[in-house]
Amino acid sequence: MRFLIIVNGILERATVYLLATEGSLIVQRAGLLNLGIEGFFAIAALVAYAVAVYSGNIVLAFIAAAVSALAFNMIFTVLTVHLRLNHIVSGLAVSMLGLGLSYSLGVSLVGIPLPSSISMPIVNVLGLELDPMILMSIIVAVLLWYLLYRTKLGYQIRIVGENPHVADRLGVPIDKVRYIATAIEGVLVGLGAAYYSLVVIPEWSTGVTLGKGWLAIALAMFSLWHPIYAIGGSYLIACSDSLARVLPLLGVPVSPYLLYALPYVLTIAALSIVSYVEIKKKRLGIPTALAKVYSREERARKYT
């Protein structure tokens, strides 16, 4: 029984990571390094929780979270795509605004439990009782793979991330493609954040989402920017995450505080290996133009 609870915990956390990672992955593929994800993850988690508490409708909560994340992410998109500002600093600004807003406005929700009407329906797949979101996150991964590698839009997203100047010559509407990518990111991260605050945690406290958004960025890199590999990456990190809670329960003398660092250590190690393999001329998925500001008129200035 205890084993099932642990497995369920891993599945739930992996779902959050997977949705957020898929979101981050698609904008990175379009050449945007969106550090603002931390901010709108927090915003969406709060909106989902607030809507759930006041309306008692779980579907409404998920929709509200996706819409709010989408809207909030547009700040980043305007700053980087139209105003050609630095991705990292713009992302940090959006993050700070999002974290600040969600934790100061969310103070009134601390300690308020979710109404009993908020629970996920259960579907029976091959004798296993699963949450539909767990299945949906995997379907999303497959759909994104199809989108990236089998459709025109996916091709456009990849070439914009690879070399926006070439994309421009080919007539790809760069700004529009980047908008679509950030919109997809907003919706996916919003759903992941809602699932996190409504199902995984399910309570609201200050600082509850800290680090989750930024971990998704690293996870996308860890997964070689490939939607299918992201499934493996998310489940691996979710497993290491659950070690921190499970090992002390089993009486293993390891400090949980050190185990909390494990996902981050793994991510740094993997990111380094992946980047190293990439510079040894093995083609992986790294978007070459990641975090580079694109400005049509200033070609000579940006590429040396």
Partner: peptide
């Protein structure tokens, strides 16, 4: 290895704060 330093420094922040808590 050309690992993106913006991401790794952020990750190291969480590792440092885990050490502090520990």
């Amino acid at each position: 290895t050309e690992a993106n330093e913006a991401v790794t420094t952020l990750m190291m922040l969480y590792i440092a704060s885990s050490i502090l808590n520990y």
